[in-house]
Design a protein around this nucleic acid. Sequence first.
DNA 1: ACACTGACCACTG
DNA 2: CCAGTGGCCAGTG
Length: 109
Amino acid sequence: MKSQFFKDVYEVVKLIPKGRVTSYGSIAKYLGTTKSARVVGWAMNNSHVLKGIPAHRVVNRIGLLTGKNHFSSPNKMEELLNNEGIKVKDDRIKNFKKLFWEPINELDL
DNA sequence: ACACTGACCACTG
DNA sequence: CCAGTGGCCAGTG
């Protein structure tokens, strides 16, 4: 497929440092527009067929694990995050603000 | 080719 | 503060 968006999304997601998280919207914003956030979600949906895509580090804007339902197991995402030292309480990332990794700031176009 | 859906976000009332 | 609506892109029936 010639979806540059997907490709870019994967690139950014793969660049997320261990122990950090980001949001669909931020990735979308980094790629040009916040309104394409839905496509980022789509990319994640397809990411499960690929490897090296830490989709568990990508959550929605408030740090809610909205996509955990799409993992192998609903608690897999939480476990992976815990494995990286990220605390998750009630499907929400604790200290999200601090762990937040914004591509625009970190990669700085 | 058309319509609907989806792991979202921001704006408006 | 909560609810509703629009916008974007790709995939599926």
